[in-house]
Design a protein around this nucleic acid. Structure first.
Lengths: 248, 248
DNA sequence: CGAGAAATTGAGGCCAATCAAGAAGTGTGG
DNA sequence: CCACACTTCTTGATTGGCCTCAATTTCTCG
């Protein structure tokens, strides 16, 4: 993964993936991202307690989860670099779950109130942020289908494809098919409504079938396109409909 | 359920539940809702094929779903009167699933492109629509938790509470605790990743335990607040954080 | 190198799926 | 208003996949 110069905006980069951004809008976005906070791997973040901030995830992975009464846990969503963390919470008075880092991360906080600046000054950015929110929703819808109606093996396979697909919007390499898996099998299990045992078995099966190759934390999907066809996996995450966007 | 005069806007009514709306914004919203289309119960809607429209659900219930390869089905979300149908699809070039009516319904279509008019003219409505989208997302997050980590009985109970909670935003009666269930047990099953058999058993159990009373299609939750406490049900759907909203 | 975390492997049990048959409810046409 | 067909719901017996519990191995990182 290539090193991003400090003065580069992760958010701008992510958004340019989808639309053109003029100078005024770029300035607007850069204004959001001026602070930076770093955290170690596998720590709980208490940032959201007052729910007044949003965060842009600059580097690393993190996930949101809720603890359940019976000592279980449900992982709600995983975030990758360039994601806006906490969009859902904008609408709510309380946040929807706790946050934990899956690796060392760098976050850029900005106040919820900044959203209204964007809403007032740039219909175009508004449309994009709105669409990114809807895209996250589409991811959830797919996960519901995954969890509701598939075997453990299918859930895990689908999830790998989801991660593969989402990471691809952060790289220029169209042919990339391996990535470092920063989630433990237990986190994956908690995301898919399984146990670590089932996840381990599924990985073993996938390897046995020659669908993936594992080397330490690095997972290589042997033939992503073929696998997507087999599972009828809809690759929705790399493209949005910008045809209706306001021009500035 | 009280009869709404024809000239009333279902969307305006729904939005006034959350925020004040001035005359200019009301006119903006009413402009969206001028057409009306009616459909019979239990028919598939082919409206979304070109994915150029959004719809406001004026009366009745409908649901979105996807068919799976192995002849199963996953219900993704259910919509009640006042809901905006297809918000998620705004971001996508293709829609995320098919639509079926659960009862006779009346829909008000308006083109996707109208969204940009709102985005340009009213930051305040933009913030609200954005928040309503995020609210729908919160519903999905809760459903993921429901499906991922609960027994059949808990899933069904939680789902009844969700419906109860969501319907409450459409009525003035703070004490209402019964509603006509317009979904078949098979639809509920497909929403929760269960079979109709499990759903039937769960309903039977709930009745036996005195948690609900059934009379034809009408379900009465004996003590909603108590049940919510028991299940640690977070009632998120009746309130949003409007503190950061632009004033017009 | 050593301690703790993560992953693997195996045995046994349970919940919900599946299959199936019958009852109850719903809607339609005569 | 009733008869009939069809859908929906209920109930029971059997099966299977995933969970639970537990022991061991492998990995990670100070």
């Amino acid at each position: 993964m290539r090193q991003v110069p400090v003065q580069d905006s992760c958010l701008v980069e992510r958004m340019r993936y989808y639309i053109d951004i003029d100078d005024a809008n770029e300035a607007l976005l850069r204004g959001l991202e001026k602070d930076e906070v770093s955290y170690k791997s596998r720590v709980k973040l208490h940032l959201q307690e007052k729910n007044t901030n949003l965060y842009i995830l600059k580097t690393g992975w993190l996930y949101r989860y809720t603890d359940l009464p019976d000592n279980r846990r449900q992982v709600l969503r995983v975030h990758f670099p360039g994601d806006i963390v906490g969009l859902t919470d904008v609408a709510m008075e309380e946040t929807i779950g706790d946050t934990m880092t899956a690796s060392d991360v760098v976050l850029c906080p900005f106040p919820k109130r900044s959203m209204d600046v964007i809403f007032r000054q740039s219909p175009r950015l508004t449309a994009l942020i709105f669409s990114l929110g809807m895209l996250e929703e589409a991811i959830l819808l797919d996960r519901i289908t995954m969890i509701g109606r598939s075997s453990a093996l299918r859930r895990v396979t689908n999830y790998l494809l989801e991660i593969h697909s989402r990471l691809r919007t952060h790289t220029d390499d169209a042919t990339f098919n391996s990535f470092e898996m920063l989630l433990t099998q237990e986190v994956i299990a908690d995301a898919l409504g399984l146990t670590n045992v089932s996840v381990s078995n599924a990985f073993g099966q996938l390897e046995l079938d020659g669908k993936i190759i594992r080397n330490r934390k690095v997972i290589t999907i042997v033939d992503p396109e073929k696998l997507k066809k087999e599972l009828d996996f809809k690759d929705r995450y790399f493209r949005i409909d910008t045809s209706w966007f306001p021009s500035h």
